[in-house]
Design a protein around this nucleic acid. Structure first.
Length: 155
DNA sequence: ATAATGTCCCATC
DNA sequence: GATGGGACATTAT
């Protein structure tokens, strides 16, 4: 089968997704949208509705490279919570700057929740726009986009 | 081999 | 509180 690609809206941005079944190859934020399908969980998440992004897999977490291990560690950060670059580094057994470099090159934001990794003193960075990171964190703190478990999805 | 990262920590004002 | 420099691991050129 061919890899599918499409986009959905999140605030002022469009979230482009390349995927197949439960495996996500790439996620990126862009000004303009494109037609095509997007995984159901991502669609719900962007709409601020309950979703469980952990049901999706990312190509970024596969392999035995240091980056892959970093992405796996980040994936375990619960929705609504944050960790610092240093803490992730300690868990994986690497350096804080390596974590920063890995986040900057994260091929699948959201699926690998790099927005939950913040600096010890501030919020850290995010591209293409730090405002996206702030919006994601604010949404996870206030809304119940987290915990799709056991039917509370609608009513 | 060198530069560049979405960092951290400690020593200074 | 603000600033500066060094150390750290990894990737890209």
């Amino acid at each position: 089968m061919a890899i599918l690609s499409g986009s959905c809206r999140f605030g002022l941005w469009n979230v482009h997704v390349s995927w197949q079944d439960d495996l996500v190859y790439r996620v990126r934020f862009a000004r303009e949208g494109i037609p095509g399908p997007v995984p159901e969980e991502i669609l719900r998440y962007c709409a601020g509705r309950p979703s469980d992004l952990s049901t999706l897999r990312s190509v970024a977490t596969e392999g035995e490279t240091t980056f892959a291990r970093i992405y796996r560690a980040v994936r375990e950060v619960p929705c609504g919570e944050t960790v610092t670059y240093g803490e992730v580094a300690w868990m994986v057994g690497t350096a804080p700057r390596a974590v920063g470099a890995a986040m900057a090159r994260n091929p699948t934001p959201l699926v690998v929740p790099c927005h939950r990794v913040v600096a010890k003193t501030g919020i850290g960075g995010f591209s293409p726009d730090l405002a996206i990171k702030e919006a994601l964190l604010a949404m996870e703190r206030q809304r119940d986009v987290c915990m799709p478990e056991k039917g509370e999805v609608n009513r």
